[in-house]
């Protein structure tokens, strides 16, 4: 069986406990307006072009079998088959193929290379995109990791079928569960979909006694008004005690440009220090452990 991923990031320090290696899976059911990993949205392989790295050497034009490179860095995406020949030859990695297929064995070998550093609670985190869209594959690799004594974490948006969650629950030490809004209309405006399934799945994980850290991005202009509702909702999930508050930042625009896409939202900003501190305090007052 094979899975499709677009990146493996070693020395991930802020994605769960200890030193971790994070695997980013391709494909996501959500379209968050502030998504920082747009190359993970589509399940299809894509080609990114980072103009700032291009030296206009023309190598890509020479090697493209489809004639899809019109001039240095100018790509006819209708002709491009993402065969990756240009990216392979590009001297500066201005061209990058987003997405490749891996076997269980390949992925297992890759993430266990840094195993020595997983002591003190560290391990492997599956993220994305939405890794649980490939839950069967994830479950297989997670099981092997568990058997090898490696701590596992799954970072999910929760917009998956119940069986997808069930598949990984036995092999997942920690769920990093994203929560963006409670009001379905707000959620739809933020992510393109309503959130019934997400809230149900989170309730299910709580009931199952899974170890869950709820990750809340705080994005001004979109979901900042939702935090009180989220707090109320989480208070009722008695086993969930840890939340991680993420402050929006804007260091991702170049990734959209590289894919030939428009930036989805410009009416967007980070909460102020005061707003952020007030939200953090409110969660702490209710007894939550707040990570930032």
């Amino acid at each position: 069986m094979r899975g499709k991923i677009f990146a493996v990031k070693p020395f991930a320090v802020h994605d769960g406990n200890g030193i971790r290696t994070t695997v980013f899976f391709k494909g996501c059911p959500l379209r968050c307006r502030w998504c920082h990993n747009p190359e993970g949205l589509s399940f299809e392989t894509q080609l990114s072009f980072f103009a700032s790295k291009c030296i206009s050497c023309g190598t890509c034009m020479d090697v493209c079998p489809q004639g899809a490179v019109l001039s240095a860095g100018k790509i006819d995406r209708t002709r491009c088959t993402t065969c990756g020949k240009c990216a392979e030859a590009c001297p500066t990695a201005a061209l990058v193929v987003q997405g490749y297929s891996v076997t269980e064995e390949m992925l297992f070998q890759r993430v266990t290379k840094e195993k020595a550093f997983y002591r003190d609670g560290g391990g492997v985190t599956f993220s994305g995109g939405e890794c649980l869209l490939q839950s069967e594959f994830c479950a297989k690799v997670l099981r092997r990791l568990k058997h090898a004594g490696i701590n596992t974490a799954v970072d999910t948006c929760g917009m998956v079928e119940r069986k997808d969650l069930e598949a990984v629950v036995p092999f997942t030490d920690t769920f990093l569960y994203d929560l963006k809004a409670i009001d379905p209309k707000v959620h739809k405006r933020c992510t393109g979909v309503e959130n019934e399934q997400i809230l149900e799945n989170l309730t299910y994980l709580n009931k199952e006694g899974a170890n869950v850290e709820v990750v809340i991005p705080l994005v001004k202009g979109y979901n900042l008004g939702e935090w009180e509702k989220m707090l109320v909702f989480l208070k009722n999930l008695e086993r969930i005690r840890t939340v991680k508050l993420l402050k929006y930042h804007g260091f991702y625009f170049s990734k959209y440009e590289a894919l030939g896409w428009k930036i989805p939202a410009t009416d967007i900003s980070a909460p102020t220090e005061e707003e952020f501190a007030a939200i953090k305090n409110a969660f702490e007052r209710e007894g939550f452990i707040v990570k930032i």
Binding site: F11, V13, H14, G18, I19, A116, F117, R119, G122
Partner: peptide, 22 residues
């Protein structure tokens, strides 16, 4: 940024100790 906060300090400790222990 990679060693900020409690997580970051712990990661730094783990990295140093793992390297030396190995």
């Amino acid at each position: 940024s990679s060693v900020s906060g409690e997580d970051g300090l712990k990661a730094m400790n783990t990295a140093v100790k793992t390297y030396l222990d190995k």
